[in-house]
Design a protein around this nucleic acid. Sequence first.
DNA 1: GGTAGACCTGGACGC
DNA 2: GCGTCCAGGTCTACC
Length: 293
Amino acid sequence: MNIYFSPKQPYSLSSVIRSHGWIQLLPFENLDDHQAFAYTLQMNDGKVLRFEVHEEDDKISVTVPDELSDLELRELRQTISWMLALDVDLSDFYKVAMEEPRLQKAIRKSAGRILRASSLFEDVLKTILTTNTLWAATISMNRRLVEHFGTPLAEAPEIHAFPTASTLVNVSEDELKEKVRVGYRAPFIHDLALRTSEGSLDLEAYRNSTLTTAELKKELLGLKGIGPYAAAHLLMLIGRYDFIPIDSWALKMVSLEWHNGDPVKPKDVENAFERWGQFKGLAYWMWDWTNMP
DNA sequence: GGTAGACCTGGACGC
DNA sequence: GCGTCCAGGTCTACC
């Protein structure tokens, strides 16, 4: 059966899917060349299901299995709404960004909402897999993690959900190194799974936290394997845009754009977008670096 | 607070 | 096929 969502306009599913590389990481599956996607989810009751998300005019259509209970259906609606950033309202940013030529292309595409995983546990773990490595290696590590430790879909055992914290807490660091090839990240992942499964860390509470963004950043920096780049990236996913996820690419782009290709430091990247205040990260994220507004 | 070096994997490259 | 080099953030020790 299909369930429907009516996102606040302007909204573009394709722009959400293209917002960053998450669509390339299992259990996401890219469909119709970034026009739709599928995702395999393990629900709170342990059930694993695969759903497909499409855009139909101004509505989002999600194909789900028929036999869901009301409770499961409610959980699924909440999860999909979160993943598609349907709760995010960018109208205040759009108002000021309209005046900036380098942001107009993104605004025309209704960009700015960022694709999220079904849980912040998954987002944090995937973010750790993006650090200090090439993107191709991130894809490989994530694929091995899902295939080795994710619960399979009953009707298609080759498809897996993302592994839960309670599963990963029983995977040793050596096993993570050998089977997933995560290297020095193994203790970071194990610690994240342990703290999440025992309840001392409630990542999902960050979604509606009353903490300031700076306080939230401090909390994220307290997680092993999460440094300034990863913390800023996660804040963007949560919907806090006060910080820029500064990686080597950001340094390169700012260097070329404003410093004649000379080496720049993270502070220079911050300074370049300082005028955007609480939307600094979003302005950076949506910036058109191609010189073609 | 800032800096240097170690941490790992995997791809590119030269032989 | 093998060895070497390099890219990519974070952590820790040190100043």
